[in-house]
Amino acid sequence: MSLFNKITLAAAALLLASSPALAQKTMRLAHLNPDSPFESHSGAMAAVFKNLVETGTNGSVKVQLFANGQLGKDNEVIQQVRDGIVESTISSAGGIAQHYKMVGVFDMPFAFPNIAVADKVMDKDSDFGKKFSADLQAKTGLKVLGLLDSGGFFAISNSKRPIKTAADMNGLRIRTMTLPTHETTVKSLGGQPTPLPWAEVYTSLQTGVADGQMNPIPIIAFAKFDEVQKFLSITNHVITPYIWTMNQKFYDGLTADEKRVVDNAAEVAVGAGRGISRIIEASTEKGLPKLGKKMTINAIPPAELKKFAAVAQPAVRKVIEEQLGAEGVSMLNAMLADIDKASK
């Protein structure tokens, strides 16, 4: 373990130790985003889950919330959950990828035709969701509590020019998560992928380390990227998951009734997370109307997006084949089959 990771782990342990005295069954739930249920989907999920679990178990299970990445970087907190230091976390695909590379299958560009289909497929109880969750659990030991989108389809913002055709991507330094599939998508379209941790994105955009970034509208809004970006192009090129996991040993230590409450609460909380993302996207206070006050927004016509897809899809499929092998191709094909079924 590196010195940095040791320091981060020690800081997390100190923060946890300084919390109020823990009940016999206390579930510490961490996530990256603001704690307000009206600012982010993970904030909404955490708030709803805490309320339902604590009331449903009559206080026998307490839920402590750690928002805004208080306990460390995404991948570090996932490791803490695996190690039993933290009980649960709601994680981005970028964090999960460092523990479970198969998450990259979600990154096939333009695979999901609309948000309704994404809701059906990107769910732990869908045909594909069951296969994906079981494989993740088998390889990491983590129990999957929830699977949903990270806030909607990705759009691309930048400080240089509107993106109307693939040629407009040429030379743009676009921040991505540390996902080979995302990096390949940007590179295939002529951009320069610039992988950066979430905590550094705003400053990097502000200082010009990166020209732009790609994220769902709710994340662009609460991160205040409209303060450091001039143009927003609605590409809808990818939709990535947020994956909610729990330490299996902690879950196994719950009573049957407590497990039922936790499972039901997680299901309802995921629904709340989906809903708040759609509300934020549409709201004048936090969504596209708000971003439009400072940014020039353009939507790319479907005919032009087909040209984007024709370039990006083969490149990303090749990465999946090379890095995830036959198992990855099988997982990708299972997802595409479920998308096709949900689209009918």
Rank of each mutant, 00 (worst) to 15 (best):
G191I: 04
F4T: 03
D338P: 04
M214F: 11
Q213F: 07
P301H: 09
K73D: 04
V48E: 09
P162W: 03
I219P: 00
V144L: 08
F110E: 00
R28Q: 13
L189P: 08
A299R: 13
G69F: 02
Q64M: 14
M102C: 03
K187D: 05
A299T: 15
L172M: 04
F222A: 06
G69L: 00
N68P: 00
A337I: 06
K120T: 13
L22S: 15
A334N: 13
Y242E: 11
A210K: 00
H99Q: 05
L288I: 15
M122Q: 13
R278G: 08
F38L: 13
V144N: 06
A21W: 10
N215M: 11
G94R: 05
I300D: 07
A265I: 03
F308N: 08
A47T: 14
S36Y: 06
R173V: 06
G94P: 02
G208A: 02
K306Q: 14
Q248F: 13
E327N: 13
V121C: 06
R274W: 11
F49P: 06
R82Q: 14
A303Q: 14
A269F: 05
F222R: 08
A334E: 10
L142R: 09
K130Q: 12
G191V: 04
G287R: 10
V117R: 08
E304P: 02
V186Q: 03
P302W: 03
K160A: 14
F154H: 15
Y242C: 14
L15Y: 06
E76A: 05
V103D: 00
K307L: 13
A221H: 07
D252Y: 12
